[in-house]
Simulated scan of single mutants.
Amino acid sequence: MTVLAGAEPFSHTGSTEVGVLLCHGFTGTPGSLRAWGAHLAEAGFTVRCPLLPGHGTVWQDMNRTVWTDWYEAVRTELLELLGTCDSVFVCGLSMGGTLSLRLAQEFGNRIAGIVLVNPSVTTLRWDAKFGPLLAAVLPSVPGVGNDIKKPGETEIAYTRTPVRAAVSLGKLWKLVRADLPKVTQPLLLLHSAVDHIVEPVNSQIILGAVGSENVTEVVLENSYHVATQDNDAELIFERSVEFVRSVREAGVDAT
C-alpha cells in the first residue's frame, strides 16, 4: 500500500550522547511531528520517528492492526536507540503519548525522560463504551484529525476513525492507566487549554498517578489538539530541548 505524501517515517543521526524517539498519534502520521523532529535534530540529537502499522495509507488498514502492533513499532526503534545513544528520551503526541508511557513503564530508568503533548489515557465520549458492539457492524466513524487552531495548517490524518482499531486503543489505555505509578522518569507534560479530541481529565489522571518526582506541566494557551503543528509549536520544541538538556545536566551533576 502506498504511503501518503508527507506521512513517511523520518530519522536523523546526530550525537550518540542523546537519542530521541518521537511517537505520532492515532490515525495520524510522522508528518505531525516532522517540524519537532527537525528542531531536535538541529539541537544535535539523534532522532527517530516511525510510521505506525496501519497508518499513513488508508483507514481500512488500521482495522487490521491492534495496539500491540503500534507498540512493537516504537519499541523496536527504542531498542535501536538504546543500543547506540548514551541517553534516550521518548516523546509522543496524543496516542503517541500513550505509547511513550507504556515504554516508560516497561523500560524504567533505561529511558532518561519522557515528553508528552496532549496524551490520552481515556475518553469521556459516550459512544466509546459501545465500541465493541459498533465494531461488529460499523467499520468506521467520522475522523478526529486536524484539530488545529492555526490557520493554514493541515494534519495528515485519516478522515475516518477505524472502530476496531479504536477499541484496541481502549485496551491500551486501560493497561497504561493501571501502571502509571511505574512511570518514574523525569516528565514534561504539555497540554492545550482547549482540546476538542483529548479531554483535560487525561492530563489530570497522568499527573495524579505517575511516580515521577521530576514533573513539569505546561499549559498551551493558543493551540488545539495537534499542538505540534499549532501556534504553540515553537514553545513545545524549545521546552523539550531545554528538558533534555536539564535532565542530562542533572545526571552529570549526580555522578
Results as ranks from 00 to 15, higher is better:
A165K: 01
V167C: 15
V167Q: 11
S168D: 14
S168W: 07
L169V: 11
G170E: 12
G170A: 12
K171I: 15
W173S: 05
W173G: 11
K174I: 14
K174A: 15
K174L: 13
L175R: 15
L175N: 12
L175K: 14
R177L: 14
R177E: 09
R177Y: 12
A178V: 13
D179V: 13
D179N: 15
D179F: 11
D179G: 13
D179R: 15
D179H: 14
P181T: 07
P181I: 11
P181N: 06
V183K: 07
T184L: 11
Q185F: 02
Q185V: 09
P186F: 03
P186K: 09
L187K: 10
L188V: 09
L189Q: 05
L189K: 02
L189Y: 11
H191F: 12
H191S: 07
S192N: 04
S192W: 03
A193R: 14
A193L: 14
V194I: 14
V194D: 04
D195H: 08
D195E: 03
D195M: 05
D195W: 07
H196V: 11
I197N: 01
I197Q: 00
I197T: 01
E199D: 15
P200C: 08
P200V: 00
V201P: 03
S203F: 07
S203N: 08
Q204P: 05
Q204M: 13
I205V: 01
I206K: 06
I206C: 07
I206M: 09
L207E: 07
G208N: 04
A209S: 13
A209Q: 11
V210D: 04
G211R: 08
S212L: 09
S212M: 05
S212A: 09
S212T: 02
V215Y: 02
E217A: 05
V218M: 07
V218H: 06
V218R: 10
V219I: 03
V219M: 00
V219G: 09
E221D: 15
E221W: 08
E221T: 03
E221Y: 06
N222T: 01
N222H: 08
S223P: 00
S223L: 00
Y224D: 06
Y224I: 09
Y224K: 06
Y224M: 06
V226G: 01
A227G: 04
T228H: 01
D230T: 08
D230L: 02
N231G: 01
A233W: 00
A233G: 10
E234Q: 12
E234D: 12
I236Q: 02
I236F: 02
F237L: 14
F237E: 11
R239Y: 14
S240F: 02
S240R: 07
S240M: 04
V241N: 08
V241P: 03
V241W: 08
